[in-house]
Write a protein that binds this DNA or RNA. Structure first.
Length: 287
DNA sequence: AAGAGGCCCTGATAGC
DNA sequence: TGCTATCAGGGCCTCT
């Protein structure tokens, strides 16, 4: 489900809710995620306070008051739900309010705080959670990842030197987290449309100005999507259950067969499988 | 060593 | 209605 903007939207809603709150109880209902939830998971969380709710790339990172970190990755289908004990359906046996947004199946983890709990749900189990001992290990954990588009390091020099001698297309690179972190299949297509660059373009022919455009449009698209609350396709919601709006701003994603939105362009949006992922573009205005 | 392709898993939807 | 096939926002592993 989530690329950087959706994860950031979830982070923001979580931040308000759980910063400075202490974990009272943890229930693991199903340990099977992409990485099996470790045996010591519950112990490493209970009675710890959340100091900070951070994010890197598509990962939510909770900093705890014993210097450790809890990493949450949502994979393709993961969601996080806030369940408030004091909603009107609160029942006397101390079970929590059953949110209409809370799925019936695949609720892997419940983390209880004083007056509410958050629930981690992931039907496809491509997501995972990890406890990281300290900051040293956290740095190591993300060492191989490329910069986010917002970081200073993601500049034309970085791109051009990364592309040197490579024979891969640009769409492929935008999805490569070792090159740039946080871009996924939706926003890769959108970024290349705004950059007027065809996704199949081999990177070794890209010029300084092409890189400049890709950098600027990457920042633009991701920021815009965060601003709009993410893209709510397949029912994406933030932790409070609100949907996002950015899907209305898609120029190409899932618009194959429709008219190009660029004013004056007569092109029809095409769909093509590139490195096993659906890719959308206008072959009229993207050169 | 780079790059292509397969695979992990469930659920929604399309087509017959 | 009910079957089967296809596709889905990610990332890692293996093979060539």
């Amino acid at each position: 489900m989530p690329e950087l903007p959706e994860v950031e939207v979830v982070r923001q809603s979580l931040e308000h809710i759980i910063t400075h709150k202490k974990v009272k109880k943890v229930i693991v209902r199903n340990r099977n995620l992409r990485l099996k939830i470790p045996k010591n998971f519950i112990k490493s969380l209970v009675n710890k306070k959340v100091i900070k709710v951070d994010r890197f790339s598509k990962y939510i990172i909770l900093q705890l008051n014993n210097k450790s970190f809890l990493i949450l990755h949502l994979g393709m289908s993961g969601t996080i739900h806030l369940i408030d004990k004091y909603k009107k359906n609160f029942s006397t046996n101390m079970s929590f309010y059953n949110s209409p947004n809370l799925p019936k199946k695949h609720n892997h983890i419940e983390i209880f705080f004083k007056n509410f709990k958050i629930v981690y749900n992931d039907p496809r189990r491509f997501g995972f959670v990890q406890i990281i001992k300290n900051f040293e290990y956290l740095k190591k954990r993300f060492a191989k990842y490329g910069p986010e588009p917002f970081q200073k390091k993601f500049d034309t020099n970085y791109m051009l030197s990364f592309f040197k001698g490579k024979k891969r297309n640009i769409k492929n690179f935008l999805l490569d987290q070792n090159f740039v972190s946080g871009i996924g299949n939706i926003y890769a297509s959108e970024i290349l449309f705004l950059s007027k660059i065809k996704p199949t373009t081999l990177v070794n022919i890209l010029k300084f100005n092409d890189c400049k455009k890709i950098i600027n449009k990457s920042k633009f698209v991701l920021l815009k999507a965060i601003e709009k609350g993410g893209s709510s396709i397949k029912n994406f919601k933030n932790a409070k259950g609100y949907t996002g709006n950015f899907q209305k701003n898609f120029n190409v994603y899932q618009r194959d067969g429709l008219k190009c939105k660029r004013s004056g362009c007569e092109g029809i949006i095409k769909k093509k499988i590139i490195s096993n992922r659906s890719t959308f573009f206008c072959d009229y205005c993207q050169k």
